[in-house]
């Protein structure tokens, strides 16, 4: 038998659990932890590995991908991996004249799923333009084509080869800005100290050192990964980068190909939206290479894994082999 007082308490309990608690949870904002010197704490090891690429594949018509299509993408990737790794019958020798390929997929770490933002799967990192494609200024890209062709064909000495092969910076735009995912080593370690934020990029062991509340260096100073300064906008780290290195203009990986002109201005935002996630957003203003500004966003997810050293120079037998290969071709 329930008396009136018990009935009222039961109603209160039901209201809180069924209506009140979900409302509280929905409205709850993540309380960003602070460093010992009071800045919002972004420190840790993070990964942006994902099947979602910079540009939207033609198969997708919108930024948001439904659950069914996201599952298809996951399944197709597994089938691709199997085909990539098992393209020969047992005992069969690879065919002469075929693509020499690379190494099989175990050496890679490109993710298994499209990433999610606010619970929705995304078809592209690019959020603007709305078609998810780079607004390329084709004349500018055409001018670069010849230089790019030279870079991959000339092998008279190491300095003619690409920056990745020379162990100068990682290939593609893994080190950024903007920092984009590639086939492996998609890990970043953020370390903060008063006045500085350092982002260590596992690919090629590149380190971005962002000076807080500072001025840009003189325009004639062109550093690898550009000149980055930053400031806090509430709990969001805003990073502005300009004076990009001219040799880092063309950034190519199998998952993205972008141009970043010397005069480009790039703004990045890092907002910790949960214990295990940073929302990474960027905007690229580059009139020389693009007809319009382009914007993108992706999550950086916490990783419990270590970042391992990428001591590129010490083990770079490939450079000698590439040059030897060019000499062998010349003799033929």
């Amino acid at each position: 038998m329930v008396n009136g007082e018990q009935k009222t308490s039961l109603m209160k309990f039901l209201f809180i659990t069924m209506i009140g608690l979900p409302l509280v949870l929905l409205g709850a904002e993540y309380e960003t932890p602070k460093t010992w010197f009071g800045d919002p704490d972004l420190q840790g090891t993070w990964t942006n590995a994902s099947l979602t690429t910079l540009e939207r594949p033609d198969e997708y018509k919108s930024l948001i991908v439904n659950e069914r299509d996201a599952l298809i993408a996951k399944r197709m990737t597994k089938e691709f991996v199997d085909a990539q790794d098992n393209y020969l019958e047992p005992g069969e020798t690879p065919k002469a004249g075929a693509d020499v390929g690379g190494y099989n997929t175990a050496w890679m770490d490109f993710g298994t799923e499209l990433f999610k933002i606010n619970g929705d799967y995304r078809s592209s990192i690019i959020t603007y333009p709305e078609d998810g494609k780079l607004p390329r200024r084709w004349i500018g890209w055409g001018k670069e084509a010849i230089a790019i062709a030279r870079m991959f064909r000339q092998a008279d000495h190491p300095e003619l080869r690409s920056l990745g092969e020379r162990c100068i910076v990682g290939f593609g735009s893994s080190g950024g800005p903007p920092m984009l995912n590639v086939l492996y080593n998609n890990n970043y370690q953020i370390v903060q100290s008063p006045g500085y934020v350092m982002i260590m990029v596992e690919m090629n062991h590149d380190a971005r050192i962002i000076r807080l509340n500072s001025e840009f260096n003189p325009d004639n100073m062109r550093r690898w990964l550009g000149d980055s300064i930053g400031f806090w906008e509430g709990n969001t780290l805003v990073v502005k980068t300009k004076n990009h290195h001219p040799q880092q203009k063309f950034r190519a990986a199998i998952r993205h190909q972008i141009l970043i002109s010397e005069g480009a201005e790039i703004t990045e935002k890092f907002t910790r939206v949960g214990k295990n996630e940073i929302l990474y957003q960027f905007e690229v203003n580059d009139d020389e290479a693009y007809k319009d500004v382009w914007k993108g966003e992706m999550p950086l997810r916490a990783s419990q894994e270590k970042i391992y050293e990428y001591a590129c120079h010490e083990g770079n037998y490939a450079m000698a082999n590439i040059l030897a290969g060019a000499r062998a071709e010349e003799e033929q």
């Binding site: 690379g102 092969e165 290969g325």
Partner: peptide, 13 residues
């Protein structure tokens, strides 16, 4: 540009 370097520059198809 499969990874760190182009395998086609190093290996003979």
């Amino acid at each position: 540009i499969y990874g760190h370097h182009a395998f086609t520059a190093e290996f003979d198809a």
